[in-house]
């Protein structure tokens, strides 16, 4: 028990890094993902192709590779980013692609009757999207969003390779120093706690947005 307590301090610090990356990425991904989704559903062909290419590259290559690219390859081109910024950039670029696709599916699941009703009431494109389509989309995308969000929590552990002291790295450091596997179990407990809280929050959100159904 003492041992666990003594491990706890560095692991809590690691959790802070993990949570920081998760939260900042999540906050950035929501609006950017929504904008990309709206761009994908707008009628501008070149924009659609550009965004499709972006999504293809981001979903079609490993996140680990993207992290290594931003962290090690960009500096060769003269772009040296601080560790945290590099990590955030990679995660945001990658997860935006997934969230954009979730949002796009949500937008396209709204029947064309809603657009026609809005049009006949004189609403503009942006009024129709922001006031009619997107609010209805939110309820429908919550379950797949919940999935992706939990994935993001776990994927933050990939920054392990960037020598940033996240939760997983903190655990591994102790394991290597003490020859004791307990920190892995503690780390698992931390991740489970985070995903538990997220799952609970998404459940509440779903209930809240279901009130009109």
């Amino acid at each position: 028990m003492d041992k666990i307590l003594q491990y706890l301090q560095p692991m809590l610090e690691g959790s802070e890094v993990t949570l920081e990356i998760f939260l900042l990425t999540f906050i950035m991904v929501l609006p950017i993902g929504l904008l990309v989704a709206l761009g994908r559903t707008a009628k501008c062909r070149p924009l659609q192709w550009l965004l499709e290419l972006y999504i293809w590259v981001m979903r079609g290559t490993p996140l680990m590779l993207q992290l290594l690219f931003v962290y090690f390859a960009l500096p060769l081109a003269g772009i040296k980013l601080p560790d945290m910024v590099a990590a955030l950039l990679s995660f945001t670029l990658n997860y935006t692609a997934y969230f954009a696709e979730i949002f796009r599916a949500g937008i396209q699941s709204i029947g064309k009757g809603q657009y026609e009703a809005a049009k006949m009431l004189g609403m503009s494109y942006s009024q129709t999207m922001w006031r009619i389509i997107v609010p209805q989309m939110v309820r429908r995308v919550l379950p797949p969003m919940s999935n992706e969000t939990i994935n993001l929590v776990k994927d933050t552990s990939l920054i392990y390779i960037l020598a940033m002291n996240d939760l997983l790295r903190a655990a591994r450091t102790i394991v290597q120093r003490e020859f004791d596997m307990t920190p892995f179990v503690v780390a698992a407990g931390f991740y489970l706690l985070m995903t538990f809280v997220l799952t609970w929050m998404f459940k509440r959100l779903e209930a809240y947005f279901s009130q009109y159904e």
């Binding site: 006949m120 609010p135 209805q136 009109y212």
Partner: peptide, 20 residues
């Protein structure tokens, strides 16, 4: 748009905004 606004439309499927 102004001319369209002079016409109100009622649809077979109602098309009310369900979230309002």
């Amino acid at each position: 748009k102004e001319i369209q606004g002079r016409m109100g439309m009622v649809f077979q499927q109602f098309n009310l905004f369900p979230h309002m």
